[in-house]
């Protein structure tokens, strides 16, 4: 049912421009990876703290407040590069299980991060309780799934 839409995506100006260029896809990929690095750092520093390791001398709320703009910046970079990457090979993506795993997990991870994790982290101090630890672990698991499925798009 969605296939015509994916065909249209690939026929768009951006999709065709990226698909027909030698350098565009690799460069977008590389910047997408740089976004992944920043995203990893901004997430881990808080998730690890929520789990009770890493920067244990600082409160969870302070680290989360500092990390937030970098987390948002990383996501902006990833989406801004991810969309043209997708447009350049939408039909391949349509038939790719990893792509669908990633697209199913991504909104869950985003909703969890900004809906649940942020609210809890904001009010958490020096001694994260069990609830906080679970949230840190779930955040890591969700984003790991998004990243792993994302990498696997290229292999499957």
């Amino acid at each position: 049912m969605l296939e015509p839409f994916f065909r249209w995506c690939e026929s768009t100006l951006i999709g065709q421009a990226v698909a027909n260029s030698v350098w565009a896809f690799p460069i977008l990929e590389a910047v997408h990876l740089l976004g992944l690095c920043l995203l990893g750092g901004a997430l881990l520093v808080v998730d690890l703290r929520m789990l009770g390791v890493g920067l244990t001398g600082q409160s969870v709320s302070r680290l989360a407040r500092h990390a937030r703009p970098w987390l948002v910046a990383a996501l902006v970079v990833m989406v801004a590069t991810g969309i043209p990457l997708f447009l350049s090979e939408s039909i391949k993506a349509y038939y790719n299980t990893s792509f669908w795993v990633k697209m199913a997990t991504l909104p869950v991870a985003l909703g969890f991060t900004f809906g649940v994790r942020e609210r809890v982290a904001r009010n958490e101090g020096m001694e994260p309780g069990p609830r906080c630890k679970v949230i840190g672990a779930v955040s890591l698991a969700l984003w790991f799934t998004v990243a792993a499925a994302g990498r696997w798009i290229g292999f499957s």
Binding site: C37, G40, G41, A42, L43, L44, V45, A67, W70
Partner: peptide, 11 residues
Amino acid sequence: TLGLFVGATIV
């Protein structure tokens, strides 16, 4: 592992 290694380095 870039997310861990380069991520922590960036921070």
